[in-house]
Structure formats: C-alpha cells, structure tokens
Amino acid sequence: MTFIDVAFLTSVFVTLFVIVDPPGTIPIFMALTGSMTAKQRSKAAWTATGVGMLIIVIFAVFGQFILGYMHISLSALQVSGGLLLLIISLQLLTGKEDEMAASDGVNVALVPLGTPLLGGPGAIVAVMLFAQQAQGSMPRTIGLVVALLTIAAMMFLFMRFSGVISRILGKGGVTLVTRVAGVLLAAISVQMIADGAQAFLTTWGLIPEA
C-alpha cells in the first residue's frame, strides 16, 4: 500500500498555489506593513500565515457542516469574499492602504492578510473539495496534509522576506507595485463575484450549466 498519494498531493499543491498565490501577496504585504519595523513584519507574517491556514483547515474538516448549518452556499461565499477583496483593492489603488494597517502589526495580519487574501473563499472551496476526495483514503489524507504544510511554509517565506524586495525596489517601486497589485486584486475580486453569480443563476435554472 502506498504511504502517500503523490499525484493527489501534487494536484492539491498546484491548485492551492495558484489560488493563494504566495508571490502575489508580496506587494500587498509590503503596502500594508511598510511603516512597521522588521520585528513587526515578521510577527505579521507569522500571524497571517497561522490565521490563513487555521481557517483553511477548519473548513477542510468542518466546512460542509458549517455552511449547511448556516444555510450558506459556496457561491454566496464566493460573492461575499469577492466584495471584501474589491474594497481592499480600491484602498490600494487610492493610496489608502495605511488605513488598513494597525500600529502593532496584528490587525492587518488578521484582515486582510490572514483572511480573505490567504484563507479566502477560493482556498476554502478548493480544500473542502479535496477533503471530500480524500475521505476514506489515508494516502490521500497524508498528501493533503503535506500539501497544506508546504503551502503554509511558502506563504510565510514570501511575506517574511518581502522586505528584501522592498529595499531593492525602493519607495517609488513599492508604490508602483502596490497600484498594480490593486488592479490585479480588483480583477480577481470581480472574477470571484462573477463566478458566484453564475453559480447562483445556474442553480436557479436561469442559465444552462456549462
């Protein structure tokens, strides 16, 4: 019997890497922690990674029960997460990212870094589906756990060493990257809202299934 399902592990890792996009968190992390000390940024990286992974794991284990108990559909989760990301993207585009940052570096690590950027609707939905596929299979379960731990490590490392990139780019470069990140984040949020709306319309029978 195979100890670990490598193919399943690879599938989980690639999917979550694309959704969470650790490299893409660098400009946002730099924008939100620009006024912090190195120690505060390190703490924010640890906290954001921990919060993001805690949310993902909770929904992997109890997701179906939680959504079912509260009568919330996955498409509703997508739309609400998309709206929240859209608000964050507008703050980045208008240069108001400092309003989201807390002086002690804790609040910004919880929202928006921990959730919805890391532990967001996309990652939650994906992990819930993978958890269903892994039920009853120990090799797949181990593969899922290893993939989640690997993603967590990458999330932390990309944020933790974002300061090096910040020094290379300089203040003007960070501002430029922040604005670009705002545009990309806005596009991601709109896509999430559109996907959720499409799922709603399909469920109601207003549009045919793809």
Rank of each mutant, 00 (worst) to 15 (best):
Q198K: 13
G163A: 15
W204L: 14
D195P: 03
Y69K: 13
S162E: 06
G95R: 02
A101P: 04
Q78N: 09
L110S: 15
V61C: 01
T49G: 11
L16M: 03
G136A: 05
L118H: 09
A187P: 03
S73R: 11
K39G: 07
V183D: 03
S89E: 06
I28K: 01
T25C: 13
S189C: 06
F158L: 07
V57Y: 00
F156I: 04
F158D: 09
L129P: 02
W204S: 15
M138Y: 12
Q198V: 15
L83V: 13
Q133G: 06
I193K: 07
L149P: 03
G119Q: 03
Q64C: 08
G81I: 01
Q198T: 15
T25N: 09
V164E: 09
A197I: 13
I188Q: 05
S80G: 14
F158Q: 07
G120V: 00
S73L: 09
R140Q: 13
V51K: 00
M128L: 08
Q135I: 09
P139Q: 04
V6C: 07
E97F: 10
F3L: 14
F29T: 00
V108L: 08
L110D: 06
Q78M: 12
A187Q: 10
S137K: 04
S166F: 15
T178H: 04
I124G: 00
A181R: 01
I19M: 04
S80H: 08
L67W: 01
G182D: 03
G52V: 04
D104H: 12
F8Q: 02
S75V: 05
H71D: 13
G170F: 09
K39N: 11
G120S: 05
S11Q: 07
S166W: 13
L176Q: 10
Q91A: 15
A45D: 12
T150K: 05
S162V: 07
V6R: 14
Q40D: 09
E97L: 14
G82I: 03
M155D: 15
D104K: 11
L93H: 00
S42R: 11
Y69T: 10
R179A: 01
H71W: 12
G196N: 01
F29G: 03
I124C: 00
F17D: 00
L32I: 12
V61H: 01
P116T: 05
M1Y: 11
V174N: 02
V106L: 12
S80I: 05
Q133K: 13
M154R: 06
M128V: 08
A109Y: 00
A210S: 10
P27L: 04
S162G: 07
A187Y: 04
A153I: 06
Q78S: 12
G34Y: 09
L201T: 10
T203V: 15
P121I: 00
D21T: 12
G68S: 05
F17L: 02
R140F: 08
G205I: 00
V177T: 15
M1R: 13
I72N: 12
D104E: 13
A126M: 13
G68D: 05
